[in-house]
Design a protein around this nucleic acid. Structure first.
Length: 425
RNA sequence: GGAGCAGUGGCCGAGCGGCUGAAGGCGACGGUCUUGAAAACCGUUGUACCGAAAGGUACCGGGGGUUCGAAUCCCUCCUGCUCCGCCA
């Protein structure tokens, strides 16, 4: 959420943000509602003042005076009811519009319509050449007996799968490796609830907007998270955090659930786009300073890159353009791994910077030491690793001519020292 | 799921219809004293909104109601604790 004062002071900035990020929000309409709301609230406040004064005087009045005070009061109450009526109309309109106003993108974010206009910042690692006909991850997984999509679909529907034997172990090895790396860099590991109340969904900015993407437990009014970003970022929701606790750095391993509504027919092959996966996610909550935000944005990106480098996966980093940014995101770096079967770099990580957009929604603050003012925190998050999507490049890049798979060195300690996954004979 | 009890400021805790944004204590901050510190004493110490300011308004778990007036009475929801049932 944006500070209404900023919108009042500089509506053009937010109109521009809307068009750059392709959100259609009626800023002028919002300001009109805001102005009306302000006068209505002022009237109501004045009426309250009068009511309070009259009410307080009542015990000291003579019976006749009391009568006239009471009739004045009922008059006031009638006017109050009228203004309350108006308030009841305006406030929801205002809240609704405010939820929709997007965070303007940073100046160094490229203008663009969608992910095709993201700008590559750098490439790391070599794309290997094979001197044999390489298999894709589905063929490999099937041949090695470590991926079973058919039965996943049989039992859970499309976009579901089983990982089996060394496939399951490899999946967990990647996650544990990533968790250890980031926890080793001072991030506090958290095991988190995955069913979140609507408030947490709203606080992180997923609601309103992503209801269709979310599995919802209607009976209990809870939402299955699509990412641990939700419990991690909302962990201190509504609190005034001690300034010397900042920055808060959290990392969690969680299952993630996505309905992938509207993606019908898209990325239907293999383990790329699926309804359920596991992810290690990192979140930073820092002080209200653009410089701090920038610093930690780079830090979480560096953490993710360390994981990719250690796994020996070629990737590139892109600066995500305005049209591909979420409502609350001021800037986003995606890491895209090279996926041979797809013949291109594909998103595996997403590092987002929100400034105070999320903190404001969830009322997450700290007391600034010098001024003693309560300021909204800044929040950031990034994937550390998401599996099985990351198994796509791992399988496809580490396959051998004989059909076996070499296990990346850093994962071997998590697989009892095993070096290769071979075809069952 | 059933029964009972409870939810007050950073914390503890009083208030149980108007003079209470809320006693008292702890903590924190500023000052006096001291070579420095401690102790003692004095003062300050919630949040948000409106206002240039003076000041005003709202908030005692959330929402609603009764009343001229509610932290205080009523309803409801949420959360916690205790007991019972059920399941792990």
């Amino acid at each position: 959420m944006i500070d209404i004062k900023q919108i009042r002071d500089n509506p053009e900035q937010f109109k521009d943000a809307c068009s750059a990020k392709h959100f259609n929000v009626d800023i002028d309409g919002l300001l009109a509602v805001d102005a009306e709301l302000k006068t209505v609230k002022q009237q109501l406040q004045d009426i309250s003042t009068d009511k309070n004064r009259l009410g307080r005087s009542i015990p000291k009045l003579s019976p006749e005076e009391k009568q006239s005070a009471l009739s004045q009061l009922s008059e006031l109450k009638q006017r109050e009811a009228e203004y309350n009526e108006q308030l009841g109309q305006l406030q929801p309109q205002f809240d609704e519009l405010m939820q929709q106003v997007p965070q303007p993108a940073d100046d160094d974010v490229p203008l663009g319509k969608d992910d095709t206009e993201n700008i590559e910042i750098r490439k790391e690692g070599e794309i290997p050449r094979f001197d044999f006909e390489p298999k894709d991850h589905v063929q490999l997984g099937l041949a090695l007996g470590i991926i079973d999509i058919e039965r996943g679909v049989k039992l859970a529907g499309t976009r579901n799968y089983f990982l089996k034997g060394d496939g399951a172990l490899l999946h967990w090895a990647v996650l544990r490796f990533a968790m250890d790396l980031v926890a080793g860099r001072g991030y506090v590991p958290l095991s988190v609830p995955l069913l979140m109340k609507d408030e947490a969904m709203r606080g992180t900015g997923y609601y309103p907007g992503s209801e269709d993407q979310t599995y919802r437990m209607e009976k209990d009014q809870l939402n299955l998270v699509g990412t641990a970003e939700v419990p991690l970022t909302a962990y201190r929701m509504g609190e005034i955090v001690d300034a010397d606790e900042l920055p808060l750095k959290y990392v969690a391993l969680s299952s993630c659930f996505r309905r992938e509504a509207g993606a019908a027919g898209k990325d239907t092959y293999g383990l790329y786009r699926i309804h359920q996966f596991d992810k290690v996610e990192q979140v930073v909550v820092c002080a209200n300073s653009a410089e701090e935000s920038r610093k930690y944005h780079e830090e979480i990106l560096a953490n993710a890159e360390a994981v990719m480098r250690d796994l020996g996966l070629p990737y590139r980093v892109v600066n995500v353009c305005t049209g591909d940014l979420g409502r609350g995101q001021a800037k986003k770096f995606d890491i895209e791994a090279w996926m041979p079967s797809r013949g291109k770099y594909c998103e595996t990580h997403s590092a987002s910077k929100f400034y105070e957009f999320q903190a404001r929604r969830m009322n997450l603050r700290y007391k600034e030491p010098g001024t003693k003012r309560n300021l909204f925190c800044h929040t950031l998050n990034n994937t550390v690793i998401a599996s099985p999507r990351i198994l796509i490049p791992i399988l496809e890049l580490y396959q051998n001519a004989d059909g076996s798979l070499t296990i990346p060195e850093v994962l071997r300690p998590y697989m009892n020292g095993k070096q290769k996954i071979t075809q069952p004979s």
